[in-house]
Nucleic acid binder design. Structure first.
Lengths: 209, 209
DNA sequence: CCTACCGATCGGTAGG
DNA sequence: CCTACCGATCGGTAGG
């Protein structure tokens, strides 16, 4: 009975906590349990602060989510945009983009999960910001696809937006089963998925009728 | 000031509320806002009951989710299993399965969304139940794929489980952009996705190197 | 199916 | 960064 509040005494002469630590723990927790289920007390426990002390480092819970989501998407845009803008044939660019996507997923899996699946918890203004970022992200894939069609590398596609969203959906879905600690390396999976997508964009399909 | 509790008087001589109504409204709300963010008061409001009255029809919040998720998956298993078990060539079975998947998605979109993305909110025992159901669901696709490889319809695949999960991931991802009210009909999209998947399983890919 | 209510937990703050 | 605390809301229940 002697330690009524002893559980909370995590900080005795330890180094001060940084914003980056808080954000990094929040990424893990949000990815694992989702934003609405993670309490500020969960976050403060993992970094060794009392709940109220978090607000010396962050404005509020939603700002934390916003930062994580925005950076999570920006990571992809910054890396994929130059590839899409390069002078290579569209099929090659698409392959490089898919491979690079898997590499980024491998190093920022939790953040990607939050960015892709949890931006919907943002309130109106912040969500609108993210919607625009997402459009920029989609545009990268659309550009390469359209280039490929224009250059006759790919056949004319009935609904090209469907193809773009299908490819993005395929890539994002890997998150749910691709385990970072597994034996499959990201380049290998990237190549297999690129094969899948590029075959899908080119030749006639079997089993019809 | 006269209507202090007047807002809550939704039921005056109306027909009694059924369990099915409650479940159906819960499906919509869970799909739209996710389980942890939907309060019992949100549900009771839409069916026109007071919060406590819900418990005359349901055991608790989680039982509601469990029922929705289980039926949401069972819908697919019941419809796809017979196709997988039929005597048709594997490529044809795969095409029929994908087409049927899109048809079910079209009629049970909200429930599918909840079943696919929100079973993780179940507590241990209930979640384990769903994990087993999901394995049965995956097995349907694995069976057709393996049959196709054995019959040399598909080439030997490095990681056949990757292919299964990629196809399921592709199908499930349609949920995020396929709007039930849109002009794209499910058969049409089903065919395009079947083309994508079946081409991916057969021929050599361009753009390599 | 309502009335009336419960303990627990939530995000966040004042003041130091 | 802690102490001490706040109002709001949560899922759920007893008793009728």
């Amino acid at each position: 009975m002697a330690a009524s509040r002893g559980t909370r005494r995590a900080r005795a002469g330890t180094k001060p906590v940084s914003f980056e630590q808080i954000e990094s723990e929040a990424v893990k927790l949000f990815s694992e349990k989702t934003y609405p289920v993670v309490g500020m007390r969960d976050i403060s426990d993992t970094v060794g602060l009392l709940p109220g002390s978090l607000y010396a480092h962050i404005a509020n819970k939603e700002e934390l989510l916003l930062g994580i989501v925005r950076q999570g998407i920006t990571n992809y845009i910054d890396a994929l945009e130059p590839i899409a803008a390069s002078a290579l044939p569209a099929a090659e660019r698409m392959r490089l983009i898919i491979r690079r996507y898997m590499a980024i997923l491998h190093t920022t899996r939790d953040q990607t999960n939050v960015a892709v699946n949890q931006w919907t918890y943002l309130s109106d203004d912040n969500r609108q910001q993210i919607v625009e970022l997402r459009e920029g992200y989609e545009a990268i894939f659309a550009r390469v696809l359209d280039d490929g069609i224009a250059a006759k590398e790919f056949p004319t596609i009935a609904h090209s937006r469907v193809a773009v969203l299908a490819i993005i959906g395929l890539l994002n879905s890997t998150m749910h089963w691709y385990s970072a600690h597994g034996t499959l390396d990201p380049d290998q999976i990237g190549d297999e998925l690129a094969d899948l997508a590029l075959r899908g964009l080119c030749c006639p399909a079997p089993g019809a009728g």
